[in-house]
């Protein structure tokens, strides 16, 4: 089944009628073989939703493969490229299902006048250390308030604090995933530069709150 070279796969997938149909049948089987591994920890093959999801993913993957065949650059096995597409399609759908009832608004509801206060429940009982920690927290909160845009704060709260997939955050903010990553990257760059200006190193912050 997986004995074609990349060139043979491409020739068959671009061929008419029989050769193409056979190649698609083989790819379908290859995707089906891979999916249980791809979805390990996400959805077990014994789950009643598995078969329907696998069928949808396979179908959508094959459509994408045919549509984007010209973009395959031959830097991996073609089957790995196909599996990559199947993984993206499958995980996007599972993320969508898991997070469909969570809105960004619901994550931001208890945001007070102070943007993103840091919880102090875990701070140390050692008084000297507690002072150091609360000073550092105040500084970090000030940096977040002064350096980041509203959009960046929303994205950080959703993606970094609540661990919502950035794909879902992006969707709810009406952006592409790629653009959301850039927004978060820009936020990190701003905070890093501000920390440098303040003479505060990440190592100092981590040390103040203990390792681990």
């Amino acid at each position: 089944m997986n004995t074609r070279t990349n060139a043979e796969w491409l020739a068959d997938l671009r061929a008419e009628a029989n050769a193409r149909a056979m190649a698609l049948t083989d790819l379908r089987a290859i995707i089906a073989t891979g999916l249980p591994y791809a979805l390990s920890g996400w959805l077990a093959p014994s789950d009643p939703q598995f078969d329907a999801l696998a069928e949808d993913v396979t179908q959508e993957t094959l459509v994408k493969v045919l549509a984007h065949l010209d973009s395959f650059q031959g830097r991996s096995q073609l089957t790995t490229w196909v599996q990559k597409i199947a993984v993206r399609v499958a995980l996007s759908e599972l993320r969508r299902r898991r997070w469909k009832d969570v809105s960004l608004d619901s994550l931001m509801t208890d945001e007070g006048e102070e943007p993103m206060p840091v919880t102090q429940s875990n701070v140390t009982p050692d008084p000297a250390r507690a002072v150091e920690q609360s000073e550092m927290l105040a500084m970090i909160q000030r940096m977040i308030a002064e350096e980041l845009t509203e959009k960046q704060r929303i994205a950080i709260v959703a993606a970094r604090i609540n661990e919502m997939p950035i794909e879902q955050v992006a969707q709810q903010m009406g952006m592409e995933r790629n653009a959301l990553y850039k927004l978060l990257h820009d936020a990190r760059v701003r905070l890093k530069k501000r920390m440098e200006r303040e003479g505060l190193t990440p190592e100092e912050v981590l040390a103040a709150f203990g390792s681990g």
Binding site: T119, V123, N178, H185
Partner: peptide, 24 residues
């Protein structure tokens, strides 16, 4: 919205590893 300490540390580690140019 509050930042739990462990999330704050993860964020700071992310800041430490931030590069000016990153792949999207």
């Amino acid at each position: 919205m509050q930042i739990p300490i462990d999330k704050l540390k993860t964020m700071v580690r992310g800041i430490a590893r931030t590069q000016e140019i990153e792949y999207s």
